[in-house]
Amino acid sequence: MLDPVILLPAAINGLTMGAVYALVALGLTLIYGVLHIINFAHGSLLMVGLYGAFFLHRFGVDPYLALLVMVPALFALGYVLQWSVIGRASHGSDQNVLLVTLGASIVIENLALYFFSADTQTIDTPYAIAMVDIGVALVSLPRLIALGASLALAAILWLLIARTDLGRAIRAVAKERQGARLMGIDVDHIFAMSFGIGTACLGAAACLLLPMFYVSPHIGHVFVLVAFTVVVLGGMGSFSGALIGGLLIGVTESLCGLLLGESLGQIGIFLIFIATLLFRPSGLFGSRLS
């Protein structure tokens, strides 16, 4: 069972899923890092993205083409949600925000249940079962695309945060709001932009997931727990932490699924998680607790 012929494909498969986890976690960690919000609505917003791509597919739009629609659409949804609901309800209190995002997720999920029913649904694409031989293993095409696109999007996100004025302002606002205001930075706008960008990551993740996954109103739960684990494992608010953590969790889940059976695969995630926090309480890339 530990033959590399079996292990290697499993690890690569885990890597592909891990890249999507990383994308979801990047959005979550960005929102946390800047707004200090634990965004409980993150999973529900991913579900919105999945249904968006799902219905676009019904109208004949390929999920990968739907990226061009869903990323801006989820960005706009996140911007408006932060600007008009979360920001206004917070009054500067973190407990408020916790409840507001939790409430938003309940509302969104139940609206989805009402309109779309609780049935799980999938789409059929011509490439759903296409396999690609990458030399060491056969990998399904949608998974390979998910891996490549997720890494590319993470790179774009990194450039945006590291190299643009918007990114500098986002990082500035994360640490020094009053100083930012005095430089003429519109802090509320930057908050909404951060939330929007974090949500846009979900739009991308949704389009990449749809060809290899299913849709249901509760699908957010599958990912949000893993995403929270990734964010804490990588270090709250850390960009590289979310990326490396996501990949690590994906591989762990896949290998443990192989060794322990599919239903026990997630045990590995939490074993790694607990072991990491025992030795690095602030996560892999978190600033050390003093």
């Binding site: 302002a169 990082r171 100083g179 005095l182």
Partner: peptide, 25 residues
């Protein structure tokens, strides 16, 4: 433009990035 008491620089950004943000608006 005000240079506030306590400086209020962006501690997590580089010197260059701080200066860049001076010309944000």
């Amino acid at each position: 433009v005000q240079v506030p008491e306590g400086r209020r620089i962006f501690p997590n950004l580089t010197v260059r990035e701080n200066l860049d943000l001076g010309s944000y608006r």
